[in-house]
Design a protein around this nucleic acid. Sequence first.
DNA 1: CCAAAAGTGTTCAGGCTACACCCATGT
DNA 2: ACATGGGTGTAGCCTGAACACTTTTGG
Lengths: 229, 229
Amino acid sequence: MKHTYLYPRAALTVDCVVFGFDEQELRVLLIERGLEPFKGHWALPGGFVRLDETLDEAAFRELKEETGLEKVFLEQLYTFSTVDRDPRERVISVAYYALTKLADHRTRAATDAADAQWFRISQIPALAFDHADIFSKALERLRGKLTYQPIGFELLPAKFTLSQLQRLYEAVLGTALDKRNFRKKVLSYDLLIPLNEQLREGPHRPAQLFRFNPVRYERLKKKGFLFEL
Amino acid sequence: MKHTYLYPRAALTVDCVVFGFDEQELRVLLIERGLEPFKGHWALPGGFVRLDETLDEAAFRELKEETGLEKVFLEQLYTFSTVDRDPRERVISVAYYALTKLADHRTRAATDAADAQWFRISQIPALAFDHADIFSKALERLRGKLTYQPIGFELLPAKFTLSQLQRLYEAVLGTALDKRNFRKKVLSYDLLIPLNEQLREGPHRPAQLFRFNPVRYERLKKKGFLFEL
DNA sequence: CCAAAAGTGTTCAGGCTACACCCATGT
DNA sequence: ACATGGGTGTAGCCTGAACACTTTTGG
């Protein structure tokens, strides 16, 4: 009760749209709220920004605290400021989106955050506050970005097959892609390194595993660069 | 002196990077600060956000108050939060960028805001706070956006020639473009309406004037759409 | 008549699209 | 042996890049 200002101030929060990919469909990580307002509703992970941290730091911290996630791809999305977006008082929220390797984090998230759950993006429940707006802006951004920057890999395990990569693109973009053309194009970037390893699962020919070339990956990611449709 | 909170809160501002085009080069509108900190330095127009307005509203309001500009294209850019970006106290700033028709506003801005001045982007003075960072992020965004969305027209007068449009693209992107290819491509979008009017200036053949097709323009602007290189 | 910018078509190469069959494996 | 996804090449089309000269005007 001891912080007094000349003019009224809005409270400031960060909220994170955490995407994952389950080899079939895109998913988002949501938290069930234990407190009012919107108690019992699902919401994006997030919380108040402290005075001694940047927004990026706040987003990483909240992600860690609420979901156990660390070292994920995280990028600022947009700042939401509708006057009555929080029923209690004026709260402005800086939204982030994160891309995670779902398989790596599935178990951890399940233990650190008992109330966290991955939802298919086609089956998202009613969300607290204006989180539905935030989510849709994040999805839009992900779609846009995926087509001109090679960020899709952040959603896949370190070793992956071309079919997995293609399924990811198809899931995110919502369109079917031609297998041969997709492979030709992706390989042409000289971004994937074939491993001496194959993925065998199910009654069919095993699939070649790849990882990306980290140096080339960074270079391309920086300089914004055309990818695919 | 009577706004008291349980936890300390950051102050919140908006800052606007206002672009204009003088037929030759891209320019930015800056304000000379009359108060400390950074008194006498140039800075982006902006100011504190009120509790009863959204960020967009705050940006429009500050733009009006400080520069006299109204009804310009305005879009949220990024939120800046380095802990010591303001020497007085913790201030978080939501940056916007605006595109204006310089010719229309030149005089108005000059009267409403005696301290406002248009600078060539190649000759920007030292800026207050982290405004240089904000500016460079805005320029990067403008460059990126111009190549895949038809927003360049916001910087031109309502009636313009193809050469003016081309010079704009060349100035923003920093590259020379082939005249014939440029015209072919731009016209192919069926976005420009030729007028029964020509621009005559100087000892040479007069140039055909165009305006854009507003319906088609809006449609294309919305659905994000490939433009040019 | 000279200087200055406006305006205009064609050719070529490379990239994108469409498309169908064989391969390796587990059951 | 069969069902399942993995893997591969080519031909036509279209788009983007390169390129030079004529036209219209004002001075």
